[in-house]
Design a protein around this nucleic acid. Structure first.
Lengths: 135, 135
DNA sequence: ACATTTGCAATATATTTTATTACAGTATGA
DNA sequence: TCATACTGTAATAAAATATATTGCAAATGT
C-alpha cells in the first residue's frame, strides 16, 4: 500500500539509530525525508507491530529503537515492508483453457519465490548498523 | 511504465516457444493472457528492438522467435523489461541539510545494485526453454 | 479488391500511491 | 489545571502510474 515502504522505513530506522537515546517526533523525521508526518507514523505503526521501536505519546513524545541497530537485519526490514519482491504479474486472469495461461502464474510465483530467497539471504548479512555506518 | 512487463513478455515468449515455426498473431496471444492486443504488440515491439523475435505484417502475419529458446536467458528478458529491481525510493527529494537525507538515495541505490547483480546471476542460469518446459 | 494483420499515437479509464485534513487521546510542564 | 506538543487513526482528496480502448495508416496473402 506504500511502494516506498522499505525506503521510508529504513530512513526512519537510520535516523533512530543515530539518536538511540532520544524520542524522535514524526515531524522531525518527516522533515528529513520531506514526507508527510502521517505517512511516517503509518510506517512507525508497522515497526511497532514488529517490536522494533516504541513510541511515547504526548508532549516530548516520539519514537525510539527497542533493539540495538546491530541486531536488526535488512532482511527483517524487508520482510516487514514487502510481501515479496516480484517481477510482476499480468493484471488479468489468464485464459484457463490455454495450457500456458493456466499455469503461468504458478510458474512465475515459483520463480519469484526463488528470487526472494536469494534476496533474503543477501539482506540477512547486512545489519541496520552496517547501513547506518555509511552515513 | 508497464508493471506486468516482465510477466507479459515471458508469457508471450513461452507461447512463441511452443510454436517455434508459426507466426502467432497478437490477437491469439492476447487471448491466452486475457489482455488487450495492443499491449501485446507493445511488448512485442520491445522484443523486436532486442532482436529476440521478428514479426510479419499483413494477412497471416504475426510474430515468431528469432533465436532458439535455449539461447534466451531469463536474465536477458529481465534486462529488457526492467531498469532495475528496487525495493523502492521515497517519492520526494529528501532534505539535503540532513546528513541522512543527503545520502539515503545513494546508499539505497548501492544496495539495490547489489541485489540486482544477484538476481541477474540467478536468472542467467535459467533459459526460456527451461521455463517453457514446465508447462 | 478485400480481409486480416502489424504499428503506432492519442486518449480514456482504472488502480495504486501519496498527501491532506480532521479529530480524539495522552503526556508534559508552566 | 490548562495550554501545548505529541501520537493514532480514519476518511477523503489528489497525483501518479498502469492498463485499456479507439482509430487509422500501411503491409500482405488470397
Amino acid at each position: 500500500m506504500i511502494s516506498g515502504k522499505f525506503a521510508i522505513t529504513i530512513h526512519i530506522l537510520t535516523l533512530l539509530s543515530k539518536f538511540p537515546d532520544d524520542y524522535l517526533s514524526s515531524d522531525f523525521i518527516a522533515g528529513s525525508m520531506n514526507l508527510h508526518p502521517v505517512l511516517v507514523r503509518k510506517e512507525i505503526a508497522n515497526l511497532k507491530k514488529n517490536h522494533i521501536v516504541e513510541s511515547k505519546e504526548g508532549k516530548n513524545g516520539g519514537t525510539r529503537l527497542l533493539k540495538s541497530a546491530s541486531k536488526i537485519t535488512l532482511d527483517a526490514i524487508f520482510k516487514m515492508t514487502f510481501d515479496t519482491v516480484t517481477l510482476g504479474f499480468s493484471k488479468n486472469e489468464p485464459n484457463p483453457d490455454c495450457p500456458v495461461g493456466k499455469q503461468i502464474n504458478k510458474n512465475l510465483e515459483n520463480l519469484y519465490e526463488d528470487i526472494n530467497k536469494t534476496i533474503s539471504l543477501q539482506l540477512n548479512d547486512i545489519t541496520l548498523e552496517d547501513f547506518s555506518n555509511k552515513f
